[in-house]
Amino acid sequence: MAQPNKKLPTRTVDISCAKCNAAIFKYHKGGKGALVKCFIERIAENYTEQACHCPGCGQAFARETLIRGAPAYKIIGGKVRMK
């Protein structure tokens, strides 16, 4: 299977919790679609203490998984907002 591109996209987006609006991380996102998965190597700044849990309210917003052989977070629908 193909690996994700090693060259990071220039655009960064702010990912925040949909429930409490706490900042989760800044992410180098490619394309203009919805946020479905986040490759860990593309995270610019991580504000979480515990992986896949919001630092404000503690709710789980993603699941850890391997996508195309690379570690990633699979986002649970409706749990995060992207700006």
Rank of each mutant, 00 (worst) to 15 (best):
M1D: 10
P4D: 05
N5Q: 13
K7H: 02
L8N: 10
P9C: 04
P9V: 01
T10V: 06
T10W: 01
T12F: 05
T12M: 12
T12C: 11
T12N: 12
V13P: 03
S16W: 01
S16A: 11
S16Y: 04
K19R: 13
C20I: 08
C20G: 06
N21S: 14
A22F: 04
A22H: 11
A23M: 10
K26H: 12
K26Y: 02
K26I: 00
K26D: 12
K29C: 07
K29Y: 02
G30D: 11
G31F: 10
G31C: 06
G31S: 06
A34Y: 04
V36P: 00
V36W: 01
K37C: 06
C38G: 03
C38L: 12
F39W: 15
F39T: 09
I40R: 12
E41W: 04
E45Y: 07
E45K: 15
E45T: 15
E45V: 15
N46C: 14
N46V: 02
Q50S: 10
Q50I: 14
C52F: 03
H53R: 12
C57W: 06
C57E: 11
Q59Y: 05
Q59T: 09
F61G: 09
F61S: 10
F61M: 08
A62I: 04
A62L: 03
R63M: 07
E64V: 01
T65C: 13
T65M: 12
T65E: 13
L66D: 07
I67D: 10
R68I: 01
A70E: 15
A70D: 12
A70N: 08
A72D: 07
Y73I: 00
Y73N: 02
I75A: 02
I76P: 00
G77L: 09
K79Y: 03
V80L: 13
R81H: 05
R81M: 06
R81C: 04
